[in-house]
Nucleic acid binder design. Structure first.
Length: 260
DNA sequence: ATGGCGCGCGCAGCGCGA
């Protein structure tokens, strides 16, 4: 089972890139972030015409998440129960016994800002939510734009970024808290080249110079981490005309064959 | 990298992203 995540930075604008990538990469499930589309205007037709089932939770202009899958999901849930939030940032569905949660973690804008405080509160609620989801769904994958670069090796210039939003100690502690639930960073299950990132600033030729951050992640519960065969960033779509500033990330999970 | 771009909204220029 191939599970992917991609912050598309506007689903409407990125539709051609998305459909191309779905065709070539052929994931079973992909989580999208920053669809920036209210539900009534969600462009289901071209997606369904390409053979995908969809679940989505969006709003005008900002945020918005979706799950696209080859087979229909069950137990679809938007948002986190018990955390009232106008901002559409979470959607979950199950595919067989595999639970997939797609998340768009708040950016936080600047350390100490109201948006940063909201980010930390949000991450606290997310941690509690994942704890309860793990109890119900031991085969859990949590994917999305976490807006956190977990370690210095996930940052092109750790000195320049030190202490700023996306790398601040409190954000990194929150990320470690997610790992502490028993989730595993799928990318780190395999050796990766130095300078493996998932986001590059549009400005200053950030991508060409590989001035990036690794902030999009696939976290897998122990049961699924044991079945993870690969995890990769596909930078190809970032090279296209009018790209998203994020690249898709995917992981392949294959259960061990049953003993004879 | 002080910013530089790209998005939505809406028709000018601003808020936001990371």
């Amino acid at each position: 089972m191939k599970i992917a995540t991609w912050n598309v930075n506007s689903l409407k604008v990125r539709m051609p890139h998305l459909l191309d990538w779905l065709g070539s990469a052929a994931p079973d499930v992909i989580a999208l972030q920053e669809t920036k589309t209210e539900d009534a205007a969600f462009p289901r037709a071209p997606i369904e015409a390409a053979g995908w089932h969809v679940a989505f939770s969006g709003q005008k202009t900002y945020n918005g998440v979706a799950l696209l899958s080859r087979r229909p999901g069950s137990h679809v849930q938007a948002g986190m129960p018990g955390f009232a939030d106008e901002q559409k940032r979470v959607i979950a569905a199950s595919y067989g016994d595999v639970r997939v949660i797609g998340a768009y973690v708040p950016n936080g804008q600047a350390v100490g800002s109201d948006k940063y405080e909201y980010k930390l509160r949000w991450l606290e609620a997310f941690t509690a939510y994942l704890r309860s989801e793990l109890e119900r769904w031991p085969r859990l994958v949590v994917v999305g734009d976490y807006n956190i670069a977990p370690e210095d090796r996930d940052v092109h210039d750790p000195k320049a970024w030190e202490g700023s939003v996306l790398v601040s100690p409190a954000e990194r502690a929150a990320f470690r808290g997610l790992l502490g639930l028993g989730l595993h960073d799928a990318m780190r299950l395999f050796a990766q080249p130095d300078g493996t990132y998932t986001w590059w600033d549009y400005r200053a030729a950030g991508f060409r110079r590989n001035l990036g951050l690794r902030i999009d992640h696939i976290l897998a519960s122990a049961a699924l981490a044991a079945e993870c065969q690969a995890c990769t960033v596909d930078v190809a779509p970032r090279k296209l005309e009018r790209p998203s500033d994020h690249a898709p990330v995917w992981a392949e999970f294959t259960p061990a064959p049953a003993l004879p």
